[in-house]
């Protein structure tokens, strides 16, 4: 097993928009531990200067688990070096990024099999017996 790589968190070399976000993540982790309530942060709604988003991604690093989803374009769901902090990227059919999120949760909802899909899949399986 590879150990998660920790990048030391220093003041952002850019415009100082990363630090407050990390603070928000910290509070979200507290909330997750205390009330088991998950938090989603839409990165598209926050101001980032050139390079700051990449800086944030590097700071959070890569953790133990990552998954690829193929539905309406590809998506990557990756746990960062900080357990419970997930980096989600949704792409459309043209491979353009359409959404970037930080989810502070035990398991991102989109990883779970959905009831609607299970029902459809079960029906499909049943057809195999006929």
């Amino acid at each position: 097993m590879t150990t998660p790589q920790h990048v030391p968190i220093t003041a952002s070399p850019f415009h100082g928009n990363v630090r407050p976000l990390l603070n928000e993540v910290l509070h979200a982790l507290d909330k997750l531990l205390e009330t088991r309530e998950a938090t989603t942060i839409d990165l598209a709604s926050l101001p980032f200067g050139p390079g700051e988003l990449e800086h944030l991604e590097a700071l959070l690093g890569t953790g133990e688990l990552s998954a690829k989803l193929d539905a309406l374009g590809s998506s990557s769901i990756r746990e960062t070096a900080y357990p419970g902090v997930w980096w989600l990227e949704h792409r459309n059919a043209f491979d353009e990024i359409v959404g970037r999120y930080l989810e502070i949760t035990h398991t991102p909802e989109i990883l779970s099999s959905q009831d609607a899909d299970i029902i459809a899949g079960r029906a499909h399986l049943e057809e195999q017996f006929e």
Partner: peptide, 18 residues
């Protein structure tokens, strides 16, 4: 489109709708 795809679609829609 699967339910997962639909959820993803809704997430990006929420993002677009701010």
């Amino acid at each position: 489109v699967s339910r997962r795809g639909f959820l993803k679609y809704c997430a990006t829609t929420a993002s677009i709708l701010a």
